[in-house]
């Protein structure tokens, strides 16, 4: 805005600068769909079996982790249905990690921001959406395995959209935050992959919250916004006797901690996106 005002002092009316969301809702969705679709096609057109591979990858990771954790580390024997819990958790976490990592460079990629007045938030969102499209088919494979393993279908399976919505909300907020930070701090591209790798071990993916000893480690897990999503996924999809989030976290107050953390991420995302949206074209 300030640049537009300075350079165009003679202009009779102020020209609206680029923004994170501006341009109307319809245009936003159209652009989002278009960039996601072209991203999707671009990613899976140049390699022959890329798509299958994207689905196979979390499955392979699961197979290896399962072997190592149950046979070598000898963990998980006392947790009922550990294999399916591990698989579901890996699927959910992989979506979060991949979508956020894909979105880091999304604002500056393709040079779109220099060429047209695109609402900036479309770019990280399309990275999330493209990953989501692939993750859905991977999730389908996981569900087949969950049924084949012998998990009884439950009415709570209908609550899966709630889990998906929470995960998508968290992923979108994080994606917007990291992509906006990347505009001014290029180190984010180095830091974020490492951070998500650490988060994989530091979240309740390979172990449930129940086995974490009380102390600093447990406090971190309780604040982690991924924890309630994974805990409820276990209760609703696999084992209705597993402790729900409120029970697992210890108290109603503690159960709200991840929500607070999520709101903080959202707030940071909004602030940084608004700032990044205006300057991104100059920071390429």
């Amino acid at each position: 805005m300030t640049i537009a005002e300075e350079t165009l002092t003679d202009a009779p009316q102020p020209i609206q600068g680029p923004s994170a969301l501006g341009g109307g809702r319809r245009r936003f969705w159209n652009l989002l769909w278009l960039t996601s679709l072209s991203d999707y096609k671009g990613r899976y057109a140049d390699t022959t079996f890329s798509y299958l591979w994207t689905i196979a990858r979390p499955l392979m990771l699961f197979a290896i982790l399962y072997l190592v954790f149950t046979r070598v580390i000898r963990f998980g024997g006392q947790i009922p249905d550990y294999p399916v819990i591990l698989l579901l958790n890996i699927m959910l976490f992989t979506f979060f990690a991949e979508a956020t990592n894909r979105s880091v460079r999304s604002m500056t990629a393709r040079g779109l921001v220099r060429k047209m007045d695109i609402p900036r938030l479309v770019l990280p969102l399309s990275a999330v959406m493209t990953t989501g499209l692939v993750s859905l088919s991977a999730l389908l494979v996981a569900f087949v395995w969950i049924v084949a393993y012998g998990v009884e279908p439950m009415w709570t399976w209908l609550l899966f959209p709630v889990i998906a919505a929470a995960l998508v909300a968290l992923t979108v907020a994080t994606a917007a935050l990291v992509s906006a930070l990347y505009v001014t701090h290029r180190d984010v591209a180095q830091v974020w992959p490492v951070f998500t790798r650490l988060l994989f071990y530091g979240s309740t993916v390979i172990y449930p919250l129940g086995v974490v000893p009380p102390g600093f480690l447990r406090d971190v897990e309780v604040v982690n916004p991924l924890s309630p999503i994974l805990a409820q996924a276990r209760v609703w999809i696999i084992d209705s006797n597993a402790p729900g989030w409120i029970e697992a976290s210890g108290s109603t107050l503690a159960a709200l901690a991840p929500l607070l953390a999520f709101l903080c991420i959202c707030f940071a995302a909004v602030v940084s996106s608004r700032r990044a949206a205006r300057v991104v074209a100059e920071e390429l």
């Binding site: 954790f69 580390i73 963990f75 490492v194 790798r197 650490l198 071990y201 530091g202 390979i206 172990y207 086995v211 974490v212 000893p213 480690l217």
Partner: peptide
């Protein structure tokens, strides 16, 4: 960092 996280998780949680 990777060492710190893995070591903590492996010894304390697993």
């Amino acid at each position: 960092l990777l060492f710190g996280v893995l070591y903590t998780v492996f010894t304390k949680v697993l």
